[in-house]
Design a binder for these strands. Structure first.
Lengths: 227, 227
DNA sequence: GCAAAAGTGTTTCCGCTACACCCATGA
DNA sequence: TCATGGGTGTAGCGGAAACACTTTTGC
């Protein structure tokens, strides 16, 4: 594809969240070209002149992670006149939730490296990407209370403790274990696998997976996770 | 300003909500030029090359309504490749809430007329504007339950019944009068003006206005309007 | 037997829901 | 005096919050 097929003044950037045992993380790329060379940034791309906006966002993600089936939604259009130093670029930001263990790094051209950074220990970022990430974090916090999307971040099989730690990381609060378990189980969204953790130096926890049907119903309808 | 100062592939459109006694309404313009000549549409505009996105949205609104101090937030970026027939245009939609009695019509150039349409009786609309309005309606419905923004649609002085009718219109449900009043008053956001309606053919209702301090606090913090 | 995390019940409290009649006013 | 909408109280229920100890397992 040639340069003239892209829309010059418009881009998409994607805030990709992952969860690594105990921490919420964001996938960043280190820019190998100016502007912003050497700085970390969100993966982003131009939009092709005949490409749907959502398609462009998915393309960026697939190119970077190889992941195609994931949770993704539009976040916000960032359009300050001076946000990009060379010329005017408005960016439509998306955020995505991925199972971090499915992710396989492949830094493309114009990128030095890619890396998962804890959301609370971000490096210096290019352009207004810090603001975009903060905004995504806020949205995730709101969303996770009304839709069961947090689960997109966990492996197929998980323990209730993992789920609780995930929620605690996203919401940045401590939760009561008993109340949390009661609430989650009352949603009847989990299937008890009758399996247990292996190789842990303490009582092994039960493993669960999602009941897809119920999960999809809750995703459509929303739920109240007032914890 | 000359043509070359605008970004060709990008626009903003604004869904302006008003409330007229009993109905939620949207301000539309009738297009006087192609494409879409003769159809109704959302007020929109191009974005200037050195203009912040939010500024562009506010400018459209000020040009059309003369209103400058109002509630406004970004809704969503609509970016289907074929949404605009002539060439590629991605639009960043905003929605605004105005006190309808403050609004003073002044159709600009390229516009036949402007008109408030009831949200449930819209005319045939240009482009994807129907979709944009539905999306704005949905957002308003969600938002009004967690932020006290509904009040932006009412006159300075209002009765509790007006407020209830407003909520019923937005949420498209019936509310119990007693429960509604108890809930609203418990927020301690209203100031009893010790005034009453005039010239009504029945018992005159008390008038209230907002306590700005409390209102702003609730706007920042959010509240739970589970009705 | 001890360290480390899993797992489990009960009580209290608050807010939502449901529900029907009297009041004030102008015509 | 009637029509019209304004304005009010209470009881029951359900879900959220607070709270601490026992169980299992590997080392």
């Amino acid at each position: 594809m040639t340069k003239k097929n892209i829309i010059k003044n418009l881009s998409t950037d994607c805030v990709i969240f992952g969860f690594d045992q105990a921490q919420l993380k964001v996938l960043l790329i280190k820019l190998a070209v100016e502007p912003g060379k050497g700085l970390w940034a969100l993966p982003g791309s131009n939009i092709l002149i005949d490409e749907d906006l959502d398609t462009a966002a998915k393309r960026v993600l697939a190119e970077l992670t190889g992941i195609e089936d994931l949770y993704m939604e539009q976040l916000y259009a960032f359009g300050n006149a001076k946000r990009f130093p060379l010329f005017r670029v408005i960016t439509v930001a998306y955020f995505a939730l991925v199972k971090i263990e499915n992710y396989d790094t492949k830094p493309g051209p114009k990128v030095f490296e890619t890396k998962w950074y804890p959301i609370n220990h971000l490096p210096k970022l290019a352009f207004d990407h810090k603001e975009i990430i903060q905004s995504a974090k806020k949205r995730l916090k709101e969303k996770v209370r009304i839709k069961p999307i947090g689960f997109e971040l966990l492996p197929q099989k998980f323990t209730l403790t993992q789920l609780q730690v995930l929620y605690e990381s996203i919401l940045e609060i401590k939760l009561d274990t008993r109340n949390f378990r009661r609430k989650i189980l009352s949603l009847k969204m989990l299937i008890d696998l009758n399996e247990r953790q292996k190789d842990v130096a303490h009582r092994a926890a039960k493993l669960y997976k999602f009941d897809k049907r119920k999960y999809n119903k809750l995703k459509a309808k929303g739920f109240n996770f007032e914890i």
